[in-house]
């Protein structure tokens, strides 16, 4: 089978989302890097307001899957919609409503935490007054005006968390958000997940931290690029 199109087709007219559609709907989504498949034929349905926990070993494809949902990567095969918008065609609509806290913190080394977040506000058209409270919530009020290059790994991750707190996205994607965080900061992430759940927003949380994720309504296992039914994952 040779795909005829590997890219988003051109569309006309403005996209319109149906609020009744699930938050995430993927069918047959496969992502290949070169000839190495990272995500294989994933079908996934996540309802609106759901908090989904994604577990699996390193290299299982969790990050790739979340990046596909966030439209940072495009699926090699397969299709899907996020919040009712087509994964390939309506990327900007998805991006407006979705936030990915990835395993790279996306910070500029030579800027301070505050400057980094203010820049994010400009890109998203947010009120810059949100930066202070977000930094405070992530426990960075004292270090907010230091350059990121002097930060420890845990502090960088705190900035990334603060960045995710700037907005109240309809879909929050968290990829190993606890990495390098101390217990106090992990609680901040957990609070953010619970808040989103309480407000009816959707969360997908990928982590292999065994002590985390108990607020999730449903757990899925991922292994070798595939979603496997809970309880049957190979160790």
């Amino acid at each position: 089978m040779i795909p005829r199109t590997v890219d988003a087709p051109r569309t006309h007219g403005s996209p319109a989302a149906d609020p009744a559609t699930p938050a995430v709907l993927l069918s047959g989504v496969t992502r290949v890097f070169g000839v190495a498949p990272a995500v294989v034929r994933v079908g996934l349905r996540v309802e609106r307001g759901e908090t989904l926990l994604l577990r699996g070993p390193n290299g299982a494809g969790k990050s790739t899957l979340l990046r596909i949902v966030a439209t940072a990567l495009s699926p090699t095969y397969g299709s899907g919609s996020v919040l009712g918008f087509d994964l390939l065609r309506d990327r900007d609509e998805i991006r407006r409503r979705c936030e990915l806290l990835g395993h790279r913190t996306r910070l500029y080394e030579d800027l301070t935490a505050r400057e980094n977040l203010r820049f994010v506000c400009t890109l998203y058209g947010l009120d810059p007054s949100r930066v202070g409270p977000a930094l405070e919530r992530a426990g960075l009020a004292d270090a907010a005006d230091d350059r990121v290059s002097g930060y420890s790994q845990g502090m960088r991750q705190r900035v990334a968390v603060a960045r995710a707190l700037l907005r109240r996205p309809e879909l929050l994607l968290l990829d190993e958000p606890y990495a390098g965080l101390d217990e106090e900061a992990k609680e901040v992430v957990d609070d953010a997940v619970r808040d989103a759940g309480a407000e009816g927003r959707t969360v997908i949380l990928a982590t292999h931290d065994p002590g985390r994720g108990d607020m999730a309504g449903r757990t899925l296992l991922m292994d070798g690029g595939r979603l496997v039914p809970a309880g049957s994952a190979s160790s």
Binding site: R4, V6, D7, R10
Partner: peptide, 8 residues
């Protein structure tokens, strides 16, 4: 290609 996104 950019107009049609057809790989051919």
């Amino acid at each position: 290609y950019l107009a049609t996104k057809r790989i051919r």
